[in-house]
Amino acid sequence: MAVESFSPSSIADMVPRRSSRRSHAVFVALQREIVLGTQAPGLTLTELDLAQRFGCSQGTVREALMRLSEEGLVMRQPHRGTQVAPCDAADARALLQLRREIECRHLDRVAARVDAPLLEDLRACLDAMRNAARDGDEYRLSVQDRAFHARLFAAAELPLVAPILTRCLIHAHRYKILNSRPNRALEETAERHVPILAALEARDVAALGGLLGHHIATIVDFGPDLTDAEEIA
Rank of each mutant, 00 (worst) to 15 (best):
T38L: 03
A156G: 10
A199V: 03
R181M: 01
L68A: 12
N179Y: 11
R32C: 05
E231G: 01
D88T: 00
T46M: 02
E157P: 01
R130Y: 01
I196E: 10
A85W: 08
L126Q: 14
N183Q: 14
Y175S: 03
D127V: 10
V61F: 12
G209A: 05
V114I: 09
D49V: 04
D137A: 06
R146E: 13
R140Q: 14
L197A: 12
L73I: 01
V220F: 03
R130K: 09
E4P: 03
R53W: 05
E47M: 12
I216L: 14
D115S: 10
M75A: 11
L212Q: 09
D137G: 07
A199Q: 09
P195R: 02
C104F: 07
R174I: 02
L43V: 12
A185W: 11
L107K: 06
Q77F: 07
E138C: 02
M129Y: 05
L43D: 10
V194Y: 05
A124Q: 14
H171D: 03
R67D: 15
G223Q: 11
D49F: 01
D145N: 15
V15E: 00
F6R: 14
S7T: 04
L186F: 02
A51M: 08
R192F: 01
A40Q: 10
A147D: 05
P117K: 09
L158Y: 13
I11D: 07
S23Q: 03
P182Q: 00
F6V: 14
V74G: 04
Q39R: 15
A156P: 10
R109E: 15
R93Q: 15
A207W: 00
A147K: 14
V35N: 06
L152W: 09
A90S: 13
P182A: 01
E33R: 15
V194G: 09
Q83P: 00
P182F: 00
A64I: 13
L200H: 06
S7L: 11
S10C: 02
L65Q: 14
G42N: 10
D127L: 10
I164T: 15
N131Q: 15
K176H: 12
T82E: 09
S20V: 02
E187G: 03
A202I: 01
V84A: 10
L118Y: 06
Y139P: 02
P159I: 01
A155F: 11
L211E: 11
G72A: 08
E70Y: 12
T227D: 08
Q144G: 00
D127K: 05
G136V: 09
R130D: 12
M14A: 06
F148M: 08
Q144N: 13
M1G: 14
A124V: 02
R146P: 01
A229M: 04
G55M: 05
A132N: 05
A111G: 06
A85C: 09
L48S: 13
V205T: 04
R174C: 04
N179G: 05
